[in-house]
Design a binder for these strands. Structure first.
Lengths: 210, 210
DNA sequence: GTCTATACTTCGATAGAC
DNA sequence: GTCTATCGAAGTATAGAC
């Protein structure tokens, strides 16, 4: 169904405007609101340009996804040099914008095989990279303090950050404060295990975790 | 936009068939696949009947949602009499069908205000009931064993069960076995705390839990 | 309650002028 | 690269016969 010479590789202003418009629509009104006409209208360009740049709506979605995925992978890679990688990782996953977009793409994946394949491959890569970062950041500390493995940690981070964001979008806040405290306690305990000294080293409070 | 005398209260076979068809479509192809024509075709009835019974597509979605919500609340209420309420609760939330439908409705809520209001109200009710069940099931044990509060538990259960289901739908399984073990350990420890050991009194010392 | 027929809108996609 | 014009399919919704 697709053959003609497209222009997906470029990074023209129009192309970027279309991608931006698509993201906005997805966040505001859900993926179902993304149509060639609406995207073009919001980007202030002619609807036919969507086909010029992307060929099909499916490809438009994939382009949106790939751009966001690459940005996220770059951000993730930057976390290697963070002072507290585990906490930084939690905060990256807690970004409301990113989480909301992910939910839209998960829903989209339900009936767009191409999106499903891409999303699956990306999440795999993302989590592997996350595990790798955790592995080096918490090296040797896993067995000692009873920290879950990197693979398990990535699942916990994904699930808990996402439920907090989705709940908040629906106005649900019950239990959130306590869950955040709980997580905060784990982050602190795992990332900065109490140094082996009798007294109390300066700085952070040794909050207890439940 | 809607005024005419509808027939939402009834429970005719046709009405139920339409609701069933809508659920199937949502699970198989996502909420965007639900249209009057497709729903009617799958139910084997005339498209005009969708309007006869529901008036608008929005109302069809709400009817689907309400029917599922009531079923779920009834199931939840039944758990009061379960041998292990906490574990039963976890298993109820882990039902793939229910979790997948919830995700669809969360996505739908992004751009259908009526759905958002209904979903928000329902989740509130569901979690309150869940908290109430946990409160009586684990009465008095919270402080003793360091169990998170009922409100926090409901958030943890929602988030973790959902991420496991969504991951599985995308073919992601890394870390799942370990997370399940972790959760299983918590369920066992919290629901069936070690009988009062002679060597150790039922102390108030919180154990470190992941 | 169920059906046909139809009005109107929006969609994805393409051809071709500029 | 950008635009107009257009096709055919599918969507929501209504009127009215049976």
């Amino acid at each position: 169904m697709r053959a003609g010479r497209l222009h997906q590789g470029g990074d023209s202003a129009t192309r970027e405007a279309l991608l931006d418009a698509a993201v906005e629509l997805m966040l505001e009104d859900g993926y179902a609101a993304v149509s060639t006409r609406k995207v073009a209208a919001r980007a202030g360009v002619n609807p036919a340009l969507v086909y010029y740049y992307f060929g099909t709506v499916d490809e438009l979605f994939l382009a949106v996804f790939r751009r966001g995925a690459e940005t996220n992978l770059r951000r993730l890679d930057d976390l290697r040099r963070a002072a507290e990688p585990l906490r930084a990782l939690w905060e990256l996953s807690s970004d409301p914008r990113g989480a909301a977009l992910t939910v839209e793409f998960i829903a989209l994946a339900n009936h767009r095989p191409a999106v499903r394949a891409e999303l699956s491959a990306y999440l795999n890569r993302f989590r592997r990279l996350q595990e790798e970062i955790l592995e080096t950041a918490l090296a040797g500390r896993f067995a000692a303090v009873g920290i879950p493995s990197p693979a398990a940690l990535t699942v916990l981070i994904s699930g808990l950050s996402r439920v907090l964001v989705m709940d908040a979008a629906l106005g649900l806040t019950g239990g959130h404060a306590e869950v955040r405290e709980l997580i905060d306690g784990c982050l602190a305990a795992w990332e900065n295990p109490v140094p082996t000294d009798p007294g109390r080293s300066a700085g952070t409070e040794p909050e207890q975790t439940g």
